[in-house]
Amino acid sequence: MDMVSEMVERVRIGHANGRLVKRSGAWGMGYTAFAGSGFHIVLSGGCWLVTSDGPATELTTGTVVLTPTGAAHGLSHAPCALDDLPPGVMGPEPEPSEPVDVEILCGAYRLEHGPERLFVAGLPDVIVVPPDHDRYPELRTVVDLLRADVSGTQPGSSASRRALLDLVLVHGLRQWLEQNRAPGLLNVTDPSIAAALHAIHADLGRRWTVQQLSQVAGLSRAAFTRRFTALVGRPPMAYLTEQRLTYAGRLLRETTAPLAAIAGEVGYATEFAFAAAFRRAFGVSPGRFRRPPAAAAGVVATDADAEAPVPSRRIAP
């Protein structure tokens, strides 16, 4: 699995939403670290990105800021210290009556239960993607669609918004990766390990063993384990469990399938075994994880977090 696909798979288990922020004069918004991922897109005007380390970064119209790990950061009309920024407003705001200096489209995937961070090994905590509409027109198109979506209340906005947020993340990461081929990112080209990864994702429910995966890779068990861990960042069985439970989280959120069916789908012999593994990873039972939160404190969104479940169906990993 490539890095972009894995990133999107991970964030999908969080609650997704977006909103428009419009500011004039002297202003600032600080965002504390949270479990999830987010982004900001400067639609018009300019501002400064403030982080806990390093100097502030000037953002111009069209710049995309990605926060894959949900790291603390802030936005401001001028350079400043992160601790000096007031907390970002996390609710509806009245439409300004006067012209504004800057307009920013903000999106977030927030996980109220589970790992401390949703991340892929090798990604920076904060990524700045400069505008390049000539080479990457798709990103601007998706941003325009998301802007229209969060500005209105059309039927089906919950479904379309999640899809558009996914696409912003995909195209933003693609552009950054093409411009920054940093080492350590999960974009495995080793044919042996790539074969094992493909086998895992093609059949998450299979009772895989390290020996079976090493045979798929055409390596000895010891050589396979060493190479897999070095390239992917965790041992084979840890990666398999992680992928199974991430996929299970999506099934819990996006379908009405019974827990027993989901357990079998992701390779657990019993519902009890699945529930125990899920609780260890997410700190909450599968049933509680499936129920939408009454209110997701600190979410960047202004719309309702809950989404109606869709009929049970298989979702390709």
Rank of each mutant, 00 (worst) to 15 (best):
A33C: 05
W48F: 12
A26N: 11
C47D: 06
G36Y: 02
S44N: 14
W27S: 02
T51C: 08
G38M: 04
A56E: 12
G28A: 15
T61M: 12
G46T: 10
L59P: 15
H40R: 15
F39P: 03
G46V: 00
L49Y: 15
G38Y: 04
G30W: 01
I41A: 10
S52K: 02
G28Q: 07
L49D: 02
V50M: 02
H40G: 03
Y31D: 05
A26Y: 01
T61W: 03
T60Y: 08
A35L: 03
G28L: 02
E58D: 03
G46A: 12
W27C: 08
M29Q: 15
A33W: 11
E58G: 13
S52P: 01
H40F: 14
E58N: 13
G30N: 02
T51Q: 07
G36W: 00
T51L: 01
F34C: 01
G54C: 07
T57V: 15
D53N: 08
E58L: 13
D53E: 11
G54N: 06
T51E: 08
W48L: 01
S37Q: 04
W48N: 01
G46S: 13
S52T: 07
S52W: 00
S37I: 02
A26I: 13
W27E: 03
C47G: 12
S52I: 01
L43T: 10
T32Y: 01
E58V: 13
A56K: 04
A35K: 04
A56G: 15
A26D: 14
S37R: 06
T32H: 09
G30C: 02
